[in-house]
């Protein structure tokens, strides 16, 4: 077990090293330069651009730039080209903003998808299953932003609650319960919207996993013993159907960054996804590369957690 963990960590560090090289190359080989984003900007005089290139070592060969970048990165000195602020500090603030959205969204997705998918599989072909299928495909095919606007209009006109941003402007002057409720309202809508697509897809996947397991020989054995249907479905079938989701559970971690760009943009939510998106538009290389590195770390931590979980739940995997 310990040696497995050790080996796994070493492997992941090596992977990370290659990720850092590849992402650095891709960014620098991609067309467009920071100075070209806004050529009309009077601040971008040739002298300024030249000074800028010197200051950030852009006049050096790529491999030297690479070393400079990761030296700054690991000493925590990387700064954004846009506003000269520390990238790590920016990311950390945005991360804290994204976290509640991510946690609430994930909890909603997982707690609803499983009961829906399992019931669909057990009652396959019946009314429940067909309605669930219909609604899933409906939610999958309606674009998220469209659905979001309908919901926003509905909530704002029916409940007179503002939902854009993380809190209502100027709410800081009122009482604690007010601020709390305001936060909840602002959090709820984007979380629910972020979750709908996830529920539609995940519940389908749960259903198909469950159906596959229900067709296995050991389910027939369980029934042949005289077990009641609940025990056949929820003990023998479910336990096996859940195995692949253990892997998935580790892989949702990176969703912290990329999963919510659209939702964050619609709701003006100052989260990680939006920051990354804006950094890409501005060719803000330090921010892009740092976000990239952080997502790679999240992916690797996620797979590591999955591996460990799998070891614990599947008795067939032994080291």
């Amino acid at each position: 077990m310990l040696s497995f963990i050790g080996r796994s960590i070493v492997q992941k560090i090596i992977t990370l090293f290659f990720v850092s090289i590849v992402s650095f190359l891709i960014i620098h080989l991609a067309p467009g330069k920071p100075s070209q984003v806004d050529p009309m900007n009077p601040k971008f005089t040739p002298e300024v651009v030249e000074r800028f290139r010197k200051e950030f070592h852009l006049d050096k060969p790529l491999h030297v730039q690479y070393l400079y970048f990761y030296q700054d990165f690991f000493t925590g000195k990387t700064v954004s080209w846009k506003d000269n602020q520390s990238v790590l500090k920016k990311i950390w603030e945005r991360f804290l903003n994204s976290l509640p959205l991510f946690i609430v969204g994930t909890i909603i997705t997982w707690t609803l998808s499983f009961p829906i998918g399992i019931r669909s599989a057990i009652f396959r072909g019946r009314l429940y299953d067909r309605s669930a299928t219909f609604i899933s495909y409906l939610l999958i095919s309606i674009p998220g932003f469209f659905f979001a606007y309908i919901l926003i209009i509905f909530v704002v006109t029916q409940f007179h609650v503002p939902v854009i941003g993380m809190e209502t402007f100027g709410i800081g002057e009122t009482s604690m319960p007010h601020i709390f409720m305001d936060r909840i309202w602002h959090l709820l809508l984007p979380s629910v919207l972020g979750a709908t697509g996830g529920i539609a897809v995940l519940s389908r996947y749960v259903r198909s996993q469950m159906l596959e397991v229900e067709g296995q020989d050991y389910i027939r054995t369980a029934r042949a013993k005289g077990l009641p249907p609940e025990q056949v479905h929820y003990k023998h079938a479910l336990r096996n159907a859940l195995l692949p989701f253990v892997t998935m559970f580790g892989l949702i971690l990176p969703g912290l960054i990329g999963g919510s760009v659209i939702i964050e943009s619609i709701f003006s939510w100052p989260g990680m996804g939006r920051m990354a998106y804006e950094a890409i538009l501005a060719r803000d290389y330090p921010v892009i590369l740092t976000v990239n590195f952080v997502s790679a770390v999240l992916v690797l931590i996620g797979t590591f957690i999955s591996d460990i979980l799998y070891l614990m739940v599947d008795p067939r995997i032994r080291l």
């Binding site: 296995q216 020989d217 050991y218 027939r220 054995t221 369980a222 023998h236 336990r239 096996n240 195995l243 739940v313 599947d314 008795p315 067939r316």
Partner: peptide, 8 residues
């Protein structure tokens, strides 16, 4: 295949 792999 007739025995459930995840139970003793």
């Amino acid at each position: 295949t007739s025995l459930n792999p995840v139970f003793t």
